[in-house]
Simulated assay, not measured.
Amino acid sequence: MLVAPPGWPAQVRPPDAPDWERTAVNWLLDICPPEYRSYPALRRHVVVLARFAVLHVEACQQSCERGLSQARSELRDVADVDVVEAAVQTWHAESARLLAVRRAAGLVEEALRGRRYVARL
Score class of each variant (00 low, 15 high):
P6F: 03
G7V: 01
A10Q: 15
A17T: 10
P18G: 05
W20V: 02
R22T: 15
R22V: 15
T23Q: 06
V25F: 04
N26Y: 02
L29T: 01
L29M: 01
L29F: 07
I31F: 07
Y36R: 15
R37E: 05
R37P: 00
P40T: 04
A41Q: 12
L42C: 10
R43V: 10
R44S: 14
R44H: 10
V48M: 08
V48D: 07
L49R: 05
R51V: 07
V54C: 08
V57G: 13
E58L: 02
E58Y: 01
A59C: 01
C60L: 14
C60V: 01
C60K: 10
Q62P: 04
S63E: 12
C64K: 05
C64P: 11
R66C: 06
G67C: 04
S69N: 15
A71I: 01
S73I: 02
E74Q: 07
L75F: 10
R76H: 07
D77Y: 03
D77P: 06
V78T: 11
V78Q: 12
A79M: 12
A79F: 08
D80V: 09
V81F: 04
V81K: 04
V81E: 15
V81N: 13
V81P: 11
D82H: 08
V83P: 06
V84D: 13
V84H: 12
A87K: 05
V88I: 11
V88F: 12
Q89L: 03
W91M: 12
W91T: 06
W91R: 04
H92R: 14
E94Q: 11
E94Y: 08
E94I: 11
R97L: 08
L98S: 04
L99F: 07
R102N: 07
A104V: 03
A105I: 05
V108P: 15
E109L: 13
E109G: 12
L112N: 03
L112V: 01
R113T: 00
R115T: 11
V118G: 07
A119N: 00
R120I: 02
L121S: 08
